[in-house]
Design a protein around this nucleic acid. Structure first.
Lengths: 221, 221
DNA sequence: TGAATAGTGTCTTTTAGACAATATCTA
DNA sequence: TAGATATTGTCTAAAAGACACTATTCA
């Protein structure tokens, strides 16, 4: 039997300046040493219980981020994708608020917009495109976008996140009906200050029991 | 670096006797020699261009089935799932009509209902459950179930397939509206005979350009 | 008080579902 | 022609969207 290269790759996504960004790092080693690419690394059979564990380890070591919302995306494989040989990479996507990336403040992390074509090594461009398509698709009928915001947020903030992801304006009344129908939020007694000369918005947070799993909508937003 | 066991596993699904079945085989080798399990096998770096290729090869060799509708499901990995060591398995699911399985007529293939708990080695039960959940979920808003029927079929047949997968009766008028809205079918000038003493149903087939990719519905059935 | 955004009430439009009438076959 | 299922027309109910009104804050 042949020895295959087994790795994980991470698509770490966040919102900044009203746009979706992907976190990239300069590669430490050849091939493509010094080139911006997805954070990734070999699976370590001796320390990772499974591929998800490897993904969390890679994210922690390479970006300093500890417990993001993380899901398996897909597995990319073949003889053509890595010059070193036949390889298999289990890709994960993680969603965090821009705050979390700033607090980790890893000097090497660069955030690039996913809206213009990315020039990346291996098949990383395809991996990013798959992740963004998945995020946009699932956002249409789930609570997934909440994870791009911080611990607490207002409904107008949340609506802007959904609108950014879906690329279209949403009806305010319908949006609120749907979000409440999902029943994923709990109001926090307290208000939002940073607004300015207008009525402040109610603060909400994800119900703690829903931090790890998504809430789904029957019909979409 | 450690050597990992790299395999593919196949969840081959079909409809028979109005129920969803999964195709299983008795294992040729240890571990679990002689036990019913998912068709699977090692990735062969020297002959498989990628994992999908490996999945198609395994399916062809082990079941005689040539070109099914095939999608990547997820990757299952870790030190706990295989007694031989740390392993990684890229799982695919395939949908075929019962006809296709019969025509391949591989003597070892056994079809078991997915509706009662399956007792399978490794983490194959979890893989099957994931595949069935994925199929049922995607069926709510796509043309996926068409692939469980043969080349041609009637709308009443198709509705029964959707109803079996979704586990509920569907409104006939709405179902037809939605299916036509998807625009995935083309009528065949000719009628359906096997019916009996009543008006025969119009035959349809998937538009040829949609044999490989799904048609999606904005709102679900 | 006026400007700005948050939150709500309600009417209209769109979509889904119920029901029944018509169509077409076999025995 | 009776009986069975396919197909279609149309009315009703539910969901989504448009729009405007009220609420609350700061300058």
């Amino acid at each position: 039997m042949n020895e295959l290269i087994c790795t994980v790759d991470l698509v770490l996504l966040t919102l900044k300046d009203d746009g979706l960004k992907v976190a990239l790092l300069k590669r430490d080693h050849d091939p493509f040493k010094g080139v911006l690419s997805l954070p990734g690394g070999y699976i370590h059979a001796d320390e990772d219980a499974d591929a998800r564990d490897a993904a969390l380890r890679v994210l922690r070591v390479k970006t300093g981020i500890e417990s993001p919302y993380l899901e398996q995306l897909a597995t990319f494989s073949g003889s053509a994708r890595d010059p070193r040989g036949w390889s298999i990479s289990v890709a994960y996507y993680a969603l965090v608020s821009a705050d979390v990336i700033e607090r980790a403040s890893h000097p090497d992390v660069q955030l690039l917009s996913v809206d213009r074509p990315l020039n990346l090594p291996f098949d990383h461009r395809q991996i990013v495109e798959t992740a963004v398509a998945r995020l946009r698709s699932i956002s249409q009928y789930s609570s997934l976008p909440c994870h791009l915001l911080g611990e607490t947020f207002t409904l107008p903030q949340l609506q802007r996140v959904y609108e950014t992801l879906m690329g279209e304006a949403l009806n305010k009344v319908s949006f609120r009906r749907k979000i409440f129908e999902m029943g994923m939020l709990e109001a926090i007694a307290g208000k939002f200050g940073a607004s300015g000369a207008h009525r402040p918005a109610q603060l909400y947070r994800l119900k703690p029991e829903l931090r790890e799993r998504l809430t789904l909508l029957q019909r979409g937003l």
